[in-house]
Amino acid sequence: MSPETTGTDTQKTLKMRLWRGDESGGEFAEYQIPAQEGEVVLDVVHRIQAEDAPDLAVRWNCKAGKCGSCSAEINGRPALMCMTRMSTLDIDAPITVSPMRGFPIIRDLVTDVSYNYAVARRIPPFQPPVLAEGEVFRMQQIDVDRGQEFRKCIECFLCQNVCHVIRDHEDNKESFAGPRFFARLAELEMHPLDTLDRRRLVSEQFGLGLCNITKCCTEVCPEGIHITDNAIIPLKERVVDARFDPVAWLGRKLTGKPNPTPANVAAAYAPETLEDQLNARRAGQVGSHPMTTGIDSN
């Protein structure tokens, strides 16, 4: 007997029902495999892959809860496979593992999460103040604490998966960023150095108003980020302030500073096309700095 098969639970057989299929359809396939002590769901999936189903499609990377690749629904509950210990499940009953339901299926346990990457590209990035030569940023720990909570996000997209605004209404994806990106927007809004005002953009282009704070996102977050309480609700309050704060309105009237409309925030971000950027840089740089090959010694 190889050392791998020793263990206290060798008598028991796991009945793993894994979803197999692609966009055209599929079904649960049952795999029976001896139980071993101390495994997480991902370990069992890997054993099935190595022994019975070498072409079983599954995403994973770190297997330590730090990369957010192995998101799935285990007995219907959204979770990371690497952080779900078999000992927390009833192994006398069949255990089902299915892909995240909120995203289109690619194959088996792998889904198309490109929606998230598309939203990420639409977010106006961090915009710091201009520093003088040799100057460095100073921030207090208490001021970076809030942003740091959101930057713990491992982008497992489980919050996006369970958010009912998009889980059951595919067409809302056009106009709704989802909890992961509300956390990102909150992080930028609360960044002590950021100079861009994204408040109206948040409601008018990212659909913050569609969230009715059911907290499903917070419940599934493997990093324990308080998405609803610390990101979404404060964002909603700030959006309201931006629209209806009479003092701020008067201030803008007096200083002549324009209202932060989505249009002028987007203009500040001004994502030119890639070609424009490249042409501009080329025009500026290539001419003035003659480049050498630096490698003719080979």
Binding site: R59, C62, C67, Y117, L278, Q285
Partner: peptide
């Protein structure tokens, strides 16, 4: 590379943001 005006492609085996650097 992009800042130098290069048309740059970045290819990765996993999804973006999952690299071992996170560990």
């Amino acid at each position: 590379a992009q800042a130098k005006g290069m048309r740059t492609a970045l290819v990765c085996k996993s999804l973006l943001g999952k690299a071992h650097t996170v560990m």
